[in-house]
Design a protein around this nucleic acid. Structure first.
Lengths: 148, 148
DNA sequence: TCAAGATTTAGAATTATTCTAAATAGACGG
DNA sequence: CCGTCTATTTAGAATAATTCTAAATCTTGA
């Protein structure tokens, strides 16, 4: 078995998923999803826009962002690196990971009890690994308390 | 040279580190580093700029970016989420992580043999974890071959 | 059919980052 | 010390990425 991932099953439940999140299936959302599945090269929003335009010349950039957000929200698409906004910086060079509060946006240093390097990640032949970045997402103690 | 043995400045190895990467220690770089160490709340470049201006009103945004890049390059600062550019999207909802080639910028899906959730990460009380994102960085097979 | 609400659109606005060219500051050899 | 060389800083413009706005359109359900 090869460790490089294979194409996911065809779009069976897109409609269902959208509906489950209170969203509608529209031609644009379908198209954007199709573009992503066609060539799984992790395109940027801009690339998705250009590709979608081939089949659907009227589509606009704003709609592509809308559709991507909708697809992410309903769990059909992953945003590769969840930070849409300014990069943050950290002077702590110890081995640690970061916890992002989805609610308030704050970031916490989290000490690692076991380095993810020991977590059993196995790379296919030829890849040369330099470092691993682990990002945790959820609610910080304050927001978790409020959410109750 | 002072005959009285003075305590090494807290900065002790900033200079050394910069030098090791062929970079100079400048007041601005020192100031930016100081700002980061003063309040470890993972500020954005913009926030660093505003804070640095208090002590050093002449400093410019471009310099802050310069300094941050220098500090990251010499290993004194981490960039929290290494993606400075457009967000990428991925329709593969299987449990997997992403490998970023530092050389050519391409992104590969990597199946996980063990989920990082099992990797022994232990959160302090109160945090509620929703999901984990693991990003691998290094060279892809093509670039690794060329690098030889 | 109509009203309500969701979605799309074009384009403007905002935000984040990079680039450019000129000015300045150190470091180094004479 | 002095001038030269190169790295760095600066202001501001340019570019890139994303979000917002308001009007038009489409869907759904009464």
């Amino acid at each position: 078995m090869n460790a490089v991932a294979t194409k996911p099953p065809p779009e069976n439940d897109l409609n269902e998923r959208l509906a489950h999140s209170g969203l509608r299936l529209t031609p644009q959302r379908q198209q954007v999803h199709e573009v992503l599945r066609e060539k799984m090269d992790h395109p940027t929003a801009d690339q998705v826009f250009l590709r979608a335009k081939n089949k659907m010349p009227e589509i606009s950039m704003a709609t592509v962002y809308n559709c991507l957000d909708a697809l992410v929200k309903c769990g059909m698409v992953r945003q590769v690196t969840l930070d849409r906004g300014a990069t943050r910086f950290c002077p702590n060079m110890q081995d640690h990971s970061h916890f992002y509060c989805d609610e308030c946006g704050s970031v916490y240093d989290i000490l690692q009890t076991i380095s993810p390097a020991d977590a059993g990640i196995r790379l296919p032949r030829g890849f040369r690994l330099k470092n691993i970045e682990t990002n945790l997402h959820g609610l910080c103690p304050d927001c978790a308390a409020k959410a109750k």
